[in-house]
Amino acid sequence: MALRRRTRSRIYRLAMYAVFIGAVVLIALMTDWERIGKQFFNLEVAAQLFPDIIVVALRNTILFTLIAFVGGLLLGVLFALMKLSVIAPFRWFATVWIELFRGLPALLTIFAMAFILPIAFGVKPPGGPVGAGLIGLILVASAYMAEVIRAGIQAVPKGQSEAARSLGMSPMKTMFWVILPQGFRIIIPPLTNEFVLLLKDTSLLFIAGTFLWSKELTTFARDANTTYANATPLIMAAIMYLIVTIPLTRFTAWLERRMARER
């Protein structure tokens, strides 16, 4: 009986392998490899992309990500503290802010900022349309990060603030010197994750309008795609994204494993 059951499960497994391999072979046979090579992995086209793909596109992508991340982080701390405030209107305002910018598509927020800012305040944001788009991205980032930071603050044991308050430290000093440093340590993995999400969301900035110098990777690749009538730039941009994002997500996974071991 036991032997028969084992035999049966082995047959099932072999059948699944066979179906999987069959499907892969079938798709490989149907594919026109020569055309793919020419259209997506064309070395001549790829060579034309340098150095701009690095010194303009990748540089802009990373620069815009850093600006959105730092801006979102600073605003995020502010809204996290407001959400935890004893003053009710602060809590309401933070709640509305967070729900608003988490609930809207990032693309819409970025696009809206490019129009609202010049009209409402009568000033052109620094950097032109990209600057306005970046402000939109900062708003989106601040809403997500406020929730992450709030969770981090609340994850610090109550005894920590009790110990600090017992030493005569004010609520502000307790937050700054005792709670936030520990809270941030806890939320490094989700913050790294947020950084990766922002890096990808910089591809939405094109909607606010771009100049030659302000192209990030996706816009750069789309334009090059048109110029050369060839899809290789898309593949190159994809590789550039992955060169940055995969080490970051691996780093997060490593951090999480290490923190789990420490606990």
């Binding site: 044991p157 005894g159 920590q160 009790e162 110990a163 600090a164 017992s166 005792v178 440093p181 520990q182």
Partner: peptide
């Protein structure tokens, strides 16, 4: 004040 769970600042 001295607590049961010490409450030293771990960072």
């Amino acid at each position: 004040m001295v607590f049961q769970s010490f409450n030293l600042f771990p960072h």
